[in-house]
Design a protein around this nucleic acid. Structure first.
Lengths: 149, 149
DNA sequence: ATGGAATAGTTGCTTGCGCAAGCAGGTTGG
DNA sequence: CCAACCTGCTTGCGCAAGCAACTATTCCAT
């Protein structure tokens, strides 16, 4: 087990992954800040939109967002403060809350999406052919196989 | 310009990108913490290794790492404190520092790389065929074309 | 029923980072 | 040569996120 090394090809594939992500992420994050949203906040609003009327539990959000419940609790504080989301005691379980988007939240999410969309289109979609997109989808599927280990 | 929407294919390609990155990033980050290194710290050590004997300027590191010089200044403080790097007044410019890896830094970087390597291999390389790797390299090249705009 | 885990969420403290301001060392036009 | 400006780095302050400890509720085995 001498010095473990990636082949040239492997290295390029890996580094490209990191670099491309970082670059694109940086841009869309910057384009979101005028709306007063971080990427994290944006994606939480997105998850809430998906969750619909019934809302979703804080813990569930934390899991999907891959962050601590503590962090999410305070993130929810901020969004609630701004009137973008609402916490309602869960009917079925007096410990938890069902969190939902308010109309204001929904509206801001739409605005944010417009920007996101433009960025994603310009920085990602438009630079790739349909073949490349298909290849990517194929890659993501392979990576997700047997989820870890 | 009705509701901007991605096609199914575009959406999968994009979300897969985000999700895969987040998942893999999380794992390798977690595997690095036993060594007391964050991903940022690790990658700075990596850049220093690339820079070699002459070292590299703090500002240069900040640029490459896409972080503020302030953040990098403090990051350097921590690494210096731990004896992993050294700041030497730049000969050519009395304001700046040439930062270099110490032997301890080099050694820790090697240890860290061993873990990284195992993760990257297991979570990324080994799950993909050579064809897929080639396709990825091709994609990263397309994305980098005409850098932004 | 009831006491003991388990679970949902919040709060105190710490940490890492960015912005803006500061400082000291360069650079340049008169 | 020196005044005005610029640049490389550091410092003060604030914010977002994690860990650990805590509260309140529910679940479960007896």
């Amino acid at each position: 087990m001498a010095t473990e090394r990636l082949t040239e090809l492997e290295d390029e594939a890996w580094r490209g992954f990191l670099v491309s992500h970082e670059r694109i992420w940086g841009v869309i994050e910057a384009d979101l800040t005028p709306l007063g949203l971080s990427m994290t906040e944006y994606s939480v609003l997105g998850l809430l939109a998906e969750a619909g009327r019934d809302g979703i539990r804080l813990t569930e959000l934390a899991k999907k967002r891959m962050m601590s419940t503590a962090g999410l609790s305070r993130l929810a504080d901020r969004l609630e403060q701004r009137g973008l989301i609402e916490r309602c005691r869960a009917a079925s379980d007096g410990r938890g809350y069902d969190v939902t988007l308010t109309p204001a939240g929904r509206s801001l999410l739409r605005k944010a999406w417009k920007r996101q969309y433009a960025d994603i289109k310009r920085l990602f979609i438009d630079k790739l052919t349909e073949e490349q997109l298909n290849a990517l989808v194929d890659v993501w599927a392979s990576l997700a196989d047997q989820e870890e280990r």
